[in-house]
């Protein structure tokens, strides 16, 4: 594979031909903000928060879709770039409910993160804001379209991974929104509740209903597991708080991690009071009695011998 050398913020970096400026910057450890970019999905270059300055270019190209070229000179945090990013954040906030205090996404929200990073405390614009009703019609996903920044990740996750295409963009201009066919509620759509959209949403527009109100990103621990319900072996995160399992979330939107309902919801039996923990065996009277694991497995003698050897 041929390699290309370019300069980013004064540092030289060599990456494979066909890489994007964003990937080259990542290699140097330079952090460029992104909303619509996801390595597992196609690249629309839509949100423009990742724009950079490229010497000789007329405009500010989006680093997530701009291929590197030899000798390219890139500035990722120049004055013009910062101005553009701050303006974009300002514009998003002009049409976003600033309810971070009660937002499920708080702590894991990209908008919150970048507003902090770029010092955008609020919006300088006053004007129309969307006032969509909360869409609670889906049994597993809650949609708050007022928080949607139209990055389109949910549309792509639904279309490209699951192939379901339950949602897409509708309308034009300021009225553009992500919508199920005929602007029906999500509960009446072709949604199969895979929750890939929830996983990729960078803001609080899409939430997992079963995790609602149970804790924010900084209050929970995530444990990667492989689902054993079937032989697909999907990987996902078990979300726990103070040791108690709250739910399961997809690790990322990708093929091979479809996260079916069985895998995600079958965890209910962990906390089922009827769930049996120690093994039971029938005694001579035909009654179930708690039995040690070694006895249940017929390994009592082996264990006894090992214990002796250990001593």
């Amino acid at each position: 594979m041929s390699m290309v050398t370019l300069t980013i913020n004064g540092q030289k970096v060599t990456v494979p031909e066909g890489s994007t400026v964003l990937e080259a910057a990542e290699k140097l450890g330079i952090s460029i903000p992104t909303f619509c970019h996801d390595p597992n999905l196609t690249k629309p270059g839509a949100c423009r928060i990742c724009v950079v300055e490229v010497q000789g270019a007329r405009n500010l190209p989006a680093s997530c879709v701009t291929p590197v070229t030899g000798g390219m000179v890139v500035e990722t945090h120049s004055a013009a770039v910062l101005e553009a990013r701050r303006t974009i954040l300002d514009l998003i906030l002009a049409n976003h409910p600033l309810d971070c205090l009660t937002c499920e996404k708080s702590g894991a929200c990209k908008l919150q993160e970048y507003a902090y990073e770029y010092g955008v405390a609020g919006t300088t614009f006053d004007g129309e804001r969307h006032d969509y009703p909360l869409d609670d019609s889906n049994p597993y996903i809650v949609r708050d379209m007022n928080k949607c920044i139209l990055c389109g990740k949910c549309v792509r996750a639904c279309t490209e991974i699951k192939g379901q295409h339950a949602v897409d963009f509708a309308r034009r201009g300021f009225e553009t929104k992500v919508s199920a066919p005929l602007d029906n509620p999500l509960g009446e759509s072709e949604c199969v509740f895979c929750n890939n959209c929830v996983t990729v949403c960078p803001v609080g527009a899409l939430s997992d209903k079963q995790l609602l109100g149970k804790g924010r990103a900084f209050e929970v621990e995530k444990e990667p597991v492989t689902c054993t319900f079937c032989d697909a072996g999907c990987e996902f995160d078990v979300v726990k708080r103070k040791g108690k399992v709250l739910g399961v979330a997809a690790k990322a939107a990708a093929v091979g991690r479809p996260l079916c309902l069985k895998g995600r919801l079958g965890l209910d039996f962990i906390h089922n009071p009827g769930r049996v923990n120690p093994p039971l065996m029938k005694d001579d009277n035909g009654q179930w009695v708690e039995t040690p694991w070694e006895a249940a497995l017929g390994l009592s003698e082996v264990v006894a011998k090992l214990a002796r050897l250990k001593d």
């Binding site: 839509a46 949100c47 201009g173 300021f174």
Partner: peptide, 19 residues
């Protein structure tokens, strides 16, 4: 009104300029 709504500067920016 004719902005496709895909990118933020055009969709949100022209709205605020218009206002």
């Amino acid at each position: 009104k004719e902005s496709c709504g895909k990118c933020i500067p055009c969709r949100e920016g022209t709205k605020r300029m218009l206002e």
